[in-house]
Each structure stands twice: as C-alpha cells, then as structure tokens.
Design a protein around this nucleic acid. Structure first.
Length: 853
RNA sequence: GGGCGAGUGGCGGAAUGGUAGACGCACCACACUCAAAAUGUGGCGACUUCGGUCGUGGGAGUUCGAGUCUCCCCUCGCCCACCA
C-alpha cells in the first residue's frame, strides 16, 4: 500500500479501465437532467499544445463535476479537419491531404487520451469525412431552398500567384498573401454567399438572452453587426437615375453640398462626363489595386475625382456635384453618401481638400457657425436653420427631435424613410480550394444552377489529385467536373468551389448528440433534447466569426423546424492564452534559448553579457518558449499538468506557463498521496460526541465542500477551488487525528473533491482506501451546514475604523455582549483608556468598531 | 476617434463594504543527511526609536470603516473604426 506516487504507472491503467467500463459514454436514460459540455474542436495540426490542454482540462472538470452531481453528460470531441495546412503539406511533402490529416488526428487523439479527458469517443466527428460533409452539403441545400444561399459578383482578395481567393485573415497588414507573398488584388468574381444579413437584427437582439456569455464577447458581436439607425433617402441624378443614400443624420439633408459615391458604384460610368472620363478611369484603377485595409486606414489624405455629373437633393431641389472617392465603400450602405461638410468631419476634410461649399444647418445656441471660419465639422447641439420645414427644431445629443422630424418629413413627402443599416455583410462561403467540402451544385447550360439531389450526396472529393499550388486542383479534373445535369441529363459542369471551413464548424455541435446517424444530419428529436449546449469553452479568437456563424446556423435550423432553441450556447467561457517564459535581451530584442542560460533568476545573455528580461509571450518556436504537453505528462503525469494549468490563473485570464511551477503541483499530489497511503486502513467506529479538535477538522472538511462547490457553480474558479483542496489537505496533515472517524471522512471527501481535477490519482487512492467502484461515479459530497458552525469566533476590534486586534469570543454572544467583550479585552482597554466612546458599531459575527468623541 | 476591461508583495494570484496579501512559486533559516536531492518545521509587503507608522497606479469624495462604491487623472491590454 505504501508505494510511491508514480503517475506513469497508474494513469495508463485507469484510462484503460475507464474505457473498458465505458464510463464516459453518454447516458441514454432520459430521466436525469441533461448537461451538454462542449469544447471548441481543434484543427488537427498533429500536435497538442498547452492551449489545447487548457481548454480540454477545463471542459473535463466541468463534465466530471456535472456527472457527480447526477446529470447525464454529453462531452464530445471531434476534428475541424478541412483547411489549407493539409493542402500545403500535400504540396510540400507530396502526401495526399486526407492521409496527412488522418495521421494527425490519430496522433492528437492519443495525446488527448493521455490527458485523461472524459470524452465520449463514440460521438467523435471529423468534418473531412464523407459521412460528415455529406450533411454539410445537405445543409447548404437547405439554405439554398430557403433563399439564404446565392451567387453574386463580389470584390474579393485575389492572389495572382496562387490564383485563388483569400480570406481577409489570410491577407497581412501590408496587403500581401500570407503564403505566396504576392500583393493581393481586389477582383470581381462570382461567388457563393450566405444571407446572414437577413438575421442581423435577430443576431443583435438575441445577444440579450446570452447572460451566460462574457460581456465583452457580446459587445464584440454587437460591434461587428454594427447597427446604425437613420434614414434611406433617394437622390436623383440629373439623367433621372435613382441614387439612394443611407444617412444617420437625415436632419442635415439641407446641408448636403455634394455627393460621394464609391469608385465601383454602378452609376459611375453614366454620371461621368467625357471631360472627366480619363481622371475617373485612372482613379478607379488605383482604387482597385488597394486592399480594403489600405483604403480605410485612418488619417489618410482625402482623395477623389469629380465625375462631372450632378444629382438633385430631393428636399430642396438643389443641384449638387457627384464625386467618387475611395473612402466610400461599395458594400456598405448604398455605396453612396450625401456629403454634409458642415456637420461631418470626413465630408469637411473632403470639402476643404477640393474647395467645395460648406453650408451649416445646425446653429449652436451661443456662437453661430460660419462656413468661412469653421475649422472642423460641428456635430454638437443646436437649432436647425436653412432647412425649410425643419427650421427652429432643436438638434441635440442623440439628435433626437431634428432626426425624427426629418424622417417624418421624408416619409410624408415620400422622398425617403426611416431605416437601419448594418455593418454586417453577407458571408462569402466559396473558396477555390481542394481540401474543403465541395459545394453540391451542377451548372447546366439549360437549367442553370441545379442542386445535386439528396440521394446523390455526398459529392465526394476526388482522390489522386495533383497539387501544384496554383489555383484549384478540382477545376482541372475534367472527368470530375463534367457530369450530366441532374435535371435534364445534358452535359453540365460541377461547381468546383469548396466551402469555407467555418461552414463545417457552424453545426458540428448539432451533429454530436447523434453523431453516428447515417440517414440524416441529426435526428431533430435528439437534437431538441440536447440543444442548447449548456457550457461552451474555447478561445477568445473565435469571439466573432465562429460564434456568430453558429448562432446564425442555429436560428436557420430553428426556422427549418430542426431545432427548438434560439441560441446554441447557453454559457460561454473564453479561456485565456497560455504564454511561455521567454528570456529577452532588451537591447538586441533577441530571444535567448533557456538552455544557454545558467542563472534562471538573474539571467545574462551568453553572447553579449546583457541582463535579460523575463517576459511571457505566446508560445512559438522562434521565441524558444514552448513546452510540449507530452514532456510534462511523461515527467510528472497528466494530473500534475492538469492541476498546474487550472491553478495558475483564473480560466479567462492569460496564463504564464513556467516549467518550474509544475514541481509545486507535483509536490501537492505527492503530499495527498502520502496523506492517504500513510493513514490507517480503518478508523475507530466510535459514536462518542466529537471533541473540539474533531469539530474543527470537520468544519475544515465542510468548508472545503462549500468553497469547492461554489467555485464550480456559477463562475468557474478552478484556481481557488484547488487552493481549497490544498487547505483541506493541510488541515488533515496538521490535525494529528489519524485514528478519528472524522479523519476518514476528510480523506474520503478530499479524494472525491479532487476527482474532477486530478482524475487518475483520485481514482487510484479511492481504490486504495478500499472502494471497488469508481470515484467518478460517486455523488458530489453534500454540505452539512451544521458542521460549519463554530462555538467561538474571532472578533475584530477597530478603533476609529483602524483594526487594532482581535479577541476570541463565544459565537452565541449578543450585540451588547460583543461590545462588552471588545471593550474589556486587552486591546480594548489599551486603546480606549481615557477616551470617550461616541458610539460603537457592532457587526455581529465580525467586528466592533469604536468611534471616539 | 468610439467602446470595454485591468492595474494588489520578488512572481502567479486571494479577498459578500469589515483583520489586505488566502493558496502556491521563488527565496531565507533550521531539522534529517558524510553530502546532496527529497521531505519536514519556521520565516517571508515596506519602514521602524519595536510603541507603531505607511501600504492595493495617482488625486479627491461617500462611509464608523474603501482593494471593493462615486468622480477626475495616469498606464497597459482588447474590440471596432474614413461605417455614412
């Protein structure tokens, strides 16, 4: 029994035992309440890193705790397996993407199993497997049927070397492709889109339901959706074409002195006069070469060209010039603005640059504005002037009255209407890539866009593809591309674009509860039972895209009758980054490899002799600051790795990983091991009343139950939960009550409370103290609140709000008695001698504060 | 420019308006050892005339009492941003 704690020996053994017992399989017994624990599934890069260890450990503690609380828990895992790295591997190493991906998955699955995470592997999903992407394709067709998937010409990032579209995230801040390094072009291409904008208002409104989400994630989503309230106003070109604009300041319509439309606006050509044609063409060409990043950079000088054309202001019939400028974006609003230089800073700068008229229509009460003397646009309060029917209306903060009045005027005169505009744009889902889910569409010369019939799904990715790195390999496969039209049978061509991988990850959590279903994406009854996810855990980097897309999918599936929840994730925990310890030379800005440093406390650069700074930064090879989870596990065991990552910081905060700290956690587990294994196998079965020492120990035990339970209840505070376990362990060691039944209760409690955090050692010790069943199938310890009651309490004595000392008093003392105890105590006498007590503030159970006169 | 967070010992971090620094790391001393490691015990905010005094980024305020609440300022981090 008194062997040494040897994680290598026990961890493998228990992992196997749990798998054999199918301990983590999702129960099918619906009598228990459900709890769906979900962690963001990883991209199978091949190696687990510390960030993975952190998420999956967190979700595992939650899942194990919920099981012990009597829930039926679903804790699944899968692989976000499509994506560029597999194609790059194929190009660089001549390995098929599938082979590379599946090998990585096998390796990472083993690494996850080494960590002892209680995933139900029966529910595993892999997005690149045909039995998964068949249903991604089916979902695409549902969207198509619902009118939520469409094709349109769009300006996209085009890499001229690799000949593919790139996502915005794949273009660096200098507008270059992350892979080829080529300057990315803006190219107008026919692409597939999802109409997420139809759900913009719901996606915004329903953020209010998400009280279990971090406030900042909700704000980020709200920012991203970017609702602005204003009016849609139709200007007319002199030639008679409608030229609508969106504005948040319809009250300033009378101050519009020119219009600006984006260089890509469809009316540019028609508006341009022959004299201006050359300048316009040149400007358009220049704008096309710039990435959106370049065009929208702050502080840029205003540029633009007059088309030579004019438009009519609908409210006053004024004829105003129409310019093009790249600060107006084609895909925001209507791609055109009315410019009110007197009250909008951008318009003001533009007017100053090109010497265009400025006409104030809001006058501040105190000092009137004049177009000649203004140095900046005025956006403050005032009274409407020069604005026809609006004259005299107050324009204030929030622009209240004047905006309402303007909208009312526009609506009665039918020149515009109040509306909202969103920053959110439709989701471009097509990619000219091989390693993605094929879009199940056939383009037929006579029938047009034809969906592949459900019975013919999945449209499988062909094997034996050549990877050159230039363009989409699918487009070059003649015998794959050429197919008969599903409708008319005449020769037609397959869609060669694949889907954005975010498509695959937008519904994986709906698939998990029914992961093995071969006849449907999921059984709606099963999905309705398990959804929504009760606790989602993942990185903050997905705060916008993945979470927004998943929310969108959920709403669409609900509208399709396949789900009955509005939101997919009831609670969200965004865990912080795991940073590594770096030794940085502040002079040379270089990172020094730790092995070269002898003194780890006051390190010196071995090359230059400079003192090094210790800073924690994101783990990366170039900084020599990565620690592979496998190294920690083989040296100290998974339990120590888990404990350290949970203890070092609260889950939402960035965590500074230092290999040296691991020792501390290993020491703690060793102490627990010795505490348990060196205790007598049986304790006295006495029924005598408890001694004071026993009562004290019992209070420590139940305090631990209370604190750990609370730390796992609302906000997850694993770090303080573990410190409570340490306190309990210390209390047991210090108690000297090894023979007592209370001590036995303490040991049993300690092991049970420890189980979610360090599952292997808890299981081993549970068996060592004589149990045959699994600790993970025990009920979570129940709190005996009577055990928390103490006969005595420590009364704090304050004088004028300053703490002067404490005194032990009976817990039953009344207010008056507490005051007397404090006054008569040594401390009280010392500080109150010769003083007049004006009043005494008594906080029962806490303190007495004497206010002197 | 707009919005949201956060600033506590050498370090990570604890603190329902009520003994600031729990728990741990590092460090120091002692015990055990031929020695080291491991382990155990004790110490560990600063100043101090050993009575105390000061101390949670800075400044004011509310309160019997403020790390915590209010206002102003500083610094750092994140999100959005020529968004009409």
């Amino acid at each position: 029994m008194e062997s040494q704690y040897s994680p290598a020996k026990i961890e493998k053994q228990w992992q196997k035992s749990w798998a054999d017992q199918k301990l983590h399989e999702t129960p099918t017994d619906n009598s228990k309440p459900k709890f769906y624990a979900l962690s963001m599934f990883p991209y199978p890069s091949g190696n687990l890193h510390m960030g993975h260890v952190r998420v999956y450990t967190i979700v595992d503690v939650v899942a194990r705790h919920k099981r012990m609380q009597g829930y039926r828990v679903l804790n699944p895992m899968g692989w976000d397996a499509f994506g560029l790295p597999a194609e790059n591997a194929a190009i660089e190493r001549n390995i098929p993407p599938a082979t590379w991906t599946y090998a990585n998955i096998d390796q990472m699955r083993d690494q996850l199993k080494d960590l002892g995470i209680s995933f139900d592997w029966e529910k595993e999903v892999t997005t690149c497997s045909p039995n998964y992407y068949q249903w991604t394709q089916w979902l695409f067709l549902q969207f198509l049927q619902m009118g939520l998937a469409y094709q349109k010409e769009a300006l996209v990032n085009w890499d001229p070397i690799d000949q593919t579209v790139l996502a915005n995230e794949q273009v660096d801040s200098e507008g270059k492709s992350w892979r080829s390094g080529a300057k990315v072009e803006r190219k107008l291409l026919r692409q597939w889109f999802f109409k997420i904008t139809d759900y913009a208002e719901q996606l915004l409104q329903d953020l209010d339901q998400l009280s279990g989400w971090p406030e900042r994630v909700r704000l980020m989503q709200a920012n991203w959706i970017g609702k602005s309230v204003g009016a849609h106003v139709t200007f007319t070109t002199v030639a008679g074409d409608d030229l609508p604009v969106f504005t948040t300041r319809p009250d300033t319509l009378w101050g519009a002195t020119f219009m600006v439309i984006s260089p890509e606006h469809p009316l540019v050509e028609k508006l341009t006069t022959p004299a201006q044609a050359k300048a316009i063409k040149a400007y358009q060409a220049e704008a096309a070469g710039k990435s959106e990043m370049d065009r929208t950079a702050e502080g840029r000088e205003k540029t633009g060209v007059w088309t030579g054309g004019y438009a009519i202001n609908p409210v006053n019939g004024e004829k105003i010039p129409v310019w093009i400028a790249d600060y107006v974006l084609v895909d925001y609003g209507t791609g055109a603005i009315m410019a009110v230089p007197a009250h909008d800073q951008r318009d003001f700068e533009f007017a100053k640059t090109f010497n265009l008229p400025i006409k104030p229509v809001v006058q501040p009460i105190d000092k009137p504005l004049s177009a000649d003397t203004m140095t900046a646009a005025y956006a403050g309060e005032g009274v409407m002037v020069n604005s026809g029917p609006l004259d005299g209306v107050p324009a204030g903060k929030g622009k209240g009255k004047s905006v309402e009045a303007a909208i009312a005027h526009l609506e009665t005169t039918q020149k515009g209407k109040g509306t909202s505009n969103y920053r959110l744009r439709d989701w471009l889902i097509s990619r000219q890539r091989y390693w993605g889910c094929p879009i199940p569409i056939v383009h037929c010369p006579s029938c047009g866009v034809v969906p592949v019939p459900d019975a013919d799904l999945p449209v499988k990715l062909p094997d034996n593809v050549e990877f050159s790195g230039k363009g989409s390999p699918l487009a070059k496969l003649e015998d794959w591309v050429n197919v008969p039209c599903p409708t008319c049978g005449t020769p037609a061509k397959r869609e060669t674009d694949t889907m954005d991988t975010f498509m695959c990850s937008s519904w994986y959590f709906m698939r998990y509860p029914d992961a093995q279903n071969t006849g449907a994406a999921f059984d709606p009854a099963i999905a309705k039972d398990w959804m929504p996810v009760d606790q989602y855990v993942g990185g903050i980097e997905h705060a916008i895209l993945h979470l927004l897309y998943s929310r969108f999918f959920t709403k669409v599936m609900r509208d399709r009758g396949l789900l009955n929840c509005d939101e997919p994730f009831k609670r969200l925990l965004t865990q912080g980054m795991v940073q590594g310890k770096t030794y940085k030379n502040p002079k040379t800005e270089r990172y020094v490899i730790p092995q070269n440093i002898k003194d780890l406390v006051n390190p010196i650069d071995p090359d230059t002799g400079d003192a090094l700074e210790i800073v924690y930064e994101k783990m990366s090879k170039s900084k020599h600051n990565g620690t592979a989870p496998g190294e920690v596990i083989s040296k100290y065991g998974a339990d120590t790795a888990r404990m350290n990552i949970l203890f070092k910081a609260p889950p939402e905060k960035d965590l500074e990983w230092d290999d040296a700290d691991v020792e501390g956690q290993f020491r703690f587990l060793n102490r627990v091991w010795r505490l348990v294994t060196e205790s007598p196998a049986s304790s006295s079965a006495s029924t005598k009343p408890l001694t004071k020492e026993e009562k004290d120990l019992r209070r420590a035990i139940h305090t631990a139950i209370k604190e750990v339970s609370e730390d796992l209840q609302d906000e997850y505070q694993f770090n303080t939960a573990i410190s409570e376990l340490m306190k309990l362990s210390n209390a047991l060691s210090d108690s000297g009550l090894k023979q007592s039944r209370v001590f036995a209760e303490g040991i049993q409690t300690l092991i049970t409370l420890l189980a979610p955090f360090a599952p292997h050692i808890a299981e081993e010790l549970w068996h060592q103290i004589g149990h045959a069943d699994s600790v993970h199938q025990q009920s979570w310890p129940t709190l005996d609140s009577d055990a928390l009651i103490s006969d005595e309490l420590t009364l704090v004595i304050q004088v004028m709000g300053k703490t002067r000392g404490t005194v032990q008093v009976p817990a039953s003392a009344t207010r008056e008695e507490l005051e007397t105890y404090a006054r008569d105590s040594e401390i009280g006498q010392r500080y109150l001698e010769g003083q007049t007590v004006k009043k005494a503030i008594v906080v029962p159970g806490k303190l007495v504060n004497f206010v002197l006169g």
